[in-house]
Design a protein around this nucleic acid. Structure first.
Lengths: 218, 218
DNA sequence: GGTCGAATTAAACGAACGTTTGAATTATGG
DNA sequence: CCATAATTCAAACGTTCGTTTAATTCGACC
């Protein structure tokens, strides 16, 4: 059946996001998908190929939505920095509203800092594609920022976004943030956009040493 | 010998950072440390206990430096937002200058988004301790920001910082950021502080929907 | 309705894993 | 110098891993 592949992909996606790639066994996946153990190797070839298939399945969707959002905003009138950021950030965090896609977003967020990623070239490719498409627009919105500075700031943006995608684990574990509701997607998007917009508009800091740097002993 | 434990910790730290926790076997660790396979279980009890020991070894150092830096800046004169951020950010990123400690920083950055962390309570505890210590200072520097908003922004800060700690993997993989030099620690710190400072000072965004939100089809 | 390829199944494969064992070796203290 | 503890060692333990095999069942088409 065709839905065997999908059931495997769904189960794998969920387990990968919950436990990690290496910590999830073929047996756990096939058990969750209610298919035979050999089905993964039959339909995908190997565990690594399955991992790549899990990423490949949704690789296009996210960036397509971003580009559509950017084009849509451009068409609807003046494009400001907040709109560009929203087009980049919103699709990623809104996908997390759908229970299934949420697993993928979490998985993707974690994959960004995974060593020896078994996800294949989908991640770097998607990363490059999205960033390259948005770069000219960011440059246009921030003409006063030089390119090196801008690129650094794009990475800081990605860091914050990826952390939100990964599920804000530490925030959930921490008792210290009872006021924040990680399930409030709209609030998270709005706040992240405002935060990053201000960061990207910042005056470039001078190269001077920070005002105080006490000698650290020990 | 006492240095058997240290050799194991060093080897484990390096391999964990390079390959991941689950992807690193006891045999690989003991081979790299040039000790017997049974040494880990003898000295630490189990692989999980070793993982916790790797984190525990440096758990105190980072936060101590942060608190010293904060106290130092406070003593040296007026404390502004940039100084507080610098006290929080600099110790983490400067540790990466030392080749050995750099491995730990990378490992720590990745552990922040690891599901089912095998690192024990060191991470949440360190996370809480550092944040709780800095929160009052942030509140003082940003009296106009309400607490919910402030806490969210602290998480965005942590997202960016953690991404830098983890080694900016995607940036290295991406061809698109040839202008950024991830080895330029001082530049990274300066830029991150400036970026986050501006983000934290931002006017709180209204709860209104963003200006344009085209219907996404497909 | 019988044929052939696709899909599923139960069972087993060798390899690698974390851990344990008991003997050999090294360090320590009276 | 010897007794005693701490450490190292080679070898093996049982388990789980990803993968493969060969037989069986299913579905489509002439």
């Amino acid at each position: 059946m065709a839905d065997t592949k999908d059931r495997i992909l769904d189960a794998a996606e969920a387990l990968f996001a919950d436990r990690g790639l290496s910590e999830t066994s073929m047996r756990a996946i096939t058990r969750a998908a209610a298919v035979n153990l050999a089905a993964v190797n039959y339909h995908f070839g190997s565990k690594d190929a399955l991992i790549q298939a899990v990423f490949a399945r949704r690789a296009e969707a996210l960036n397509s939505r971003r580009l559509e959002a950017l084009a849509g905003s451009r068409a609807c009138g003046g494009l400001d920095l907040e709109a560009v950021l929203d087009a980049y950030i919103r699709p990623a965090l809104e996908m997390a509203r759908d229970e299934k896609a949420a697993r993928y977003i979490r998985l993707l967020g974690r994959a960004y800092t995974d060593p020896n990623s078994r996800a294949g070239q989908f991640l770097p490719r998607q990363y490059d594609a999205a960033l390259e498409a948005f770069k000219p627009e960011f440059s246009r919105q921030l003409p006063q920022i030089d390119k090196t500075e801008l690129y650094w700031r794009l990475h800081f943006l990605i860091g914050s976004l990826v952390y939100c995608m990964a599920g804000l684990d530490m925030m959930r574990l921490s008792s210290s943030c009872y006021l924040c509701d990680p399930a409030d997607t709209e609030g998270m998007i709005r706040r992240l956009v405002a935060f990053v917009a201000a960061g990207m508009r910042a005056e470039a800091a001078s190269a001077a040493q920070p005002p105080t740097q006490p000698a650290v002993t020990g």
